[in-house]
Simulated scan of single mutants.
Amino acid sequence: MARWEPNASRRLMAAALDLFEEHGYDNTTVTGIAERAGLAKSTFFRHYADKREVLFDDDTLAALLVEGIGAAPEGATALDALAHAFDRTGRAVFTNDRREFSARRIAVIAAAPELQERDALKERGLIAAMVDALERRGVPDLTARVAAELGALAFRVAYERWGDPAARDDFDQVLRRALVDVRDAGALC
């Protein structure tokens, strides 16, 4: 691809995923990722701090979740506000054309401890953003923290289910079911 073509971030992400699958995370370099994407190494660093970041575009995700929580109907419970945010986010980010990429991403992360660590750190950041957004709605701190943790668990479960090649439902539908499953499991504790 020519260097001037758009979507550098997505191209870098796709190139990194291909190389992580082909050569493993440890044997893949930023230079190799940039070359595979048809871009300069400096372009990589304009988009990502390091090769661990290339599979994580959570700034967009966090912003959508916070916006969705804020836009939830007045009087919604903490979990209902999260469900509202998840619906909006699922339709915007987790489109069916991204399903195969997501399944591959899950497998690559599972094979690389550094990526697992980064995934956990990114999840902590999403939880903190959800807690903050819930507290701005007037949800008490402990309730906001519990709801955000449960929401993150539901989100993780849904992402894994949706990324399964046999899955057919849209992400927002899978996430709604996962949220119900998490609520039900919590009631059993």
Rank of each mutant, 00 (worst) to 15 (best):
L82V: 07
L121V: 02
E5T: 05
A147S: 09
M13T: 13
A111F: 03
L19W: 06
D87H: 13
F44A: 11
A40C: 07
R145Q: 13
F86N: 06
R98I: 04
V131Q: 10
R137C: 10
W162Q: 05
V157D: 12
R161N: 08
R137I: 06
A92N: 03
D50S: 14
G125N: 14
A147Q: 07
R46E: 12
I106V: 14
E160I: 06
R136A: 14
E149T: 01
A133F: 01
A147T: 09
G75I: 00
G138L: 01
A92D: 09
F86T: 05
F101I: 01
D141E: 10
A92V: 11
R11Y: 04
A2F: 01
M130G: 04
G24Q: 06
R91P: 04
A8D: 06
I69Y: 02
A62T: 04
L61E: 08
R161M: 07
T60S: 08
R168N: 10
A85S: 05
G68I: 01
A76H: 02
A144Y: 02
A133T: 03
P6F: 02
L39C: 14
R105W: 08
Y48L: 13
A49C: 04
H47R: 11
A166C: 02
L79F: 00
A167N: 15
T43R: 15
G125A: 10
D57E: 11
V108L: 08
G163M: 01
R91T: 12
L175E: 08
F20H: 06
T31K: 11
A129E: 09
E100D: 15
V146G: 00
T89W: 01
L179E: 11
L142C: 02
R99V: 09
A185C: 05
A128M: 13
W4P: 08
Q116G: 08
A15R: 04
R52F: 03
R177Y: 13
T77R: 02
R136Y: 01
G32Y: 08
E67Q: 12
K122L: 09
D184W: 10
A85G: 05
